[in-house]
Design a binder for these strands. Structure first.
Lengths: 229, 229
DNA sequence: AAAATAGTGTCTTTCAGACAGTATACA
DNA sequence: TGTATACTGTCTGAAAGACACTATTTT
C-alpha cells in the first residue's frame, strides 16, 4: 500500500500527458439579463454546436494568461481580468482524447460587452435562473460539458455577487441598475429599501451628485464604487 | 485579432503538453487543532522539504480518482471523498518543467486520521489561523507552492464549515466537539449559546439520549448528524 | 394633475452576541 | 461541599422583509 507507481524520482517526461485547455465564461448584463458569450463550432466534435470560447494552454503560458489570450483572440476583448472557476477532467468529456479543461470566468462591463461584434458564429445567450443557457427563448444544448461549466460558474457568482456586481455595471451607476444586476444573477427579486440600505451601509458607494440622463420620469442619482474605505 | 494560433481543426496531439498532477490536502482534527498530512520529499526538487502528497494523473484516470489513489498509495487511506480546491499553474512552480497541479482536499474523521501511521517521512502538521503550517511550534516551509495551496484550502473550508464540520468529527459527537471544530477552522472563539442555538435550529442534529464517556466532570450528550430533513 | 419612478420611515421578525443563571457530574 | 463543565433564559443590538409614504420628473 505504500509504493506508488509514480515515484518521486521518476522522470515525468516519460509519462503520457493529457492535453490542457482553458474555457472562458465571459458574462455581462444584456437587456437586464445575465448573458454569456458563445462561439459556434465548425469542426468535429460537436460541429454546429454553441460552445464557450476556449483554447490550448501553451507550455510557457500561465493559465490566466491563456484565458485572457483566448478572450482576445476569439472575442477581441483586451485586458480582461479572469478568475478560475474549476478544472473539468472527466475522461470522456472530449470524445477525441483526454483533455482537461480549466474554466475561467470574466465579468464584462456593459460597454465592453456591447463592443463585442455578434455574427453568425458568435452570440450572446441568456443564463437563466436555473443555470441553463438560452437564446431567443430557446434553450441551447452546448458542446462538451460546457453546460455544466456555465452552471457552476453561475453558482459561484451567486456567492460573490456583493463584490462582483460592480464589474457588471458602468463606472457610474444608479442603485436600481445595481439591484437589477443582483436580481439577474440571483434569479429572484430583491426588496428595494433593504437592498439600498445594505449597499449604502457598506461604505463603498459614493454619491456623485450627478443624475442619470433624463428618462420618462424622475432620474436617479449616479454612484461610483470606491473599494475598501 | 480574429485568427487564433490554435484553430479548432488543429490536431491537439501535435502540441507540447504540460504534465498534470494532483496534490492532496488531507485534513483532520488533532489535539483540538486543524491538522494536515505531509510527506517528506527525498528527491529533487526540494529534497528534505515537507510537501503535500501528490502524483501524476494517468491518461484514462478521472481527476478525483487520481486524488483518491494518491491518498491510498501515500497514506493508506481507503475510500476517501475528495473535493477540488483549485488548479495551480504558474509556469515556474516546478523548476524542472511545466507541471499544472490540481489541488484536492479531503476531510478525515478522527479515527481515520489517527489510523495513519506517522514516521520520519510523514507527519501531521498544524494549520494555523493565518493559513501557515507548523509542527512542534515551528513554522514549516513547504515544497513548491504548497503553502499557497494549504492557505487557499483553509479559506475555502471556512466558507463551508457549517456543512463540512460533520466530516471532521466522529459519527457521534458532542456539541462542544462540534464547536471546537468550527473554532479550529475559523481560527477564532465562538459564542457557546449562539452556536448551540444555531446548530440545533438547523434541524439536522439528532440527540441520541446517550452521553459521552464520563470525564472529570459532567458528561455531554451525544448527537448524530442527519442530513436534509 | 396624472403617471411613473426615486427614495425614505418605520414596524416587525429573525438571529447572533453577551452574560448570568441552573443542572449535573466527580472528588 | 467545591469545582468544573453542560446547558438554558433572557436581554440587547444588528440587519432584512414588508409596506406605506414622500419626492421629483415629464407629459
Amino acid at each position: 500500500m505504500e509504493e506508488s507507481p509514480v515515484p518521486d524520482d521518476y522522470d515525468p517526461a516519460a509519462y503520457d500527458r493529457p492535453s490542457v485547455t482553458v474555457d472562458c465564461v465571459a458574462m455581462g448584463m444584456s437587456d437586464g439579463k445575465l448573458a454569456v458569450l458563445l462561439t459556434r463550432r465548425t469542426q468535429l466534435p460537436f460541429p454546429g454546436y454553441w460552445a464557450l470560447p476556449g483554447g490550448f494552454v501553451a507550455i510557457p503560458e500561465p493559465l490566466e494568461a491563456a484565458a485572457s489570450r483566448v478572450l482576445k483572440q476569439k472575442a477581441g476583448l483586451n485586458d480582461v481580468t479572469v478568475d478560475q472557476v474549476h478544472a473539468f477532467g472527466a475522461v470522456e468529456r472530449d470524445p477525441r482524447m483526454r483533455i482537461i479543461s480549466i474554466a475561467y470566468r470574466a465579468l464584462l462591463a456593459p460597454a465592453a460587452l456591447a463592443a463585442v461584434p455578434v455574427h453568425a458564429d458568435r452570440c450572446l445567450a441568456t443564463i437563466d435562473a436555473d443555470g441553463s443557457v438560452s437564446a431567443n427563448g430557446q434553450r441551447l444544448s452546448l458542446a462538451f460539458d460546457h453546460a455544466a461549466i456555465v452552471a457552476m460558474t453561475l453558482t459561484r457568482l451567486r456567492r460573490t455577487i456583493d463584490d462582483d456586481a460592480f464589474a457588471l455595471v458602468a463606472a457610474q451607476f444608479t442603485l436600481r441598475e445595481l439591484q437589477t444586476v443582483h436580481e439577474a444573477v440571483l434569479g429572484r427579486p430583491l426588496n428595494k429599501p433593504a437592498f439600498r440600505r445594505r449597499m449604502l451601509d457598506r461604505g463603498i458607494l459614493q454619491a456623485t451628485g450627478v443624475f442619470e440622463a433624463v428618462r420618462a420620469f424622475r432620474p436617479a442619482e449616479l454612484y461610483v464604487h470606491v473599494p475598501k474605505g
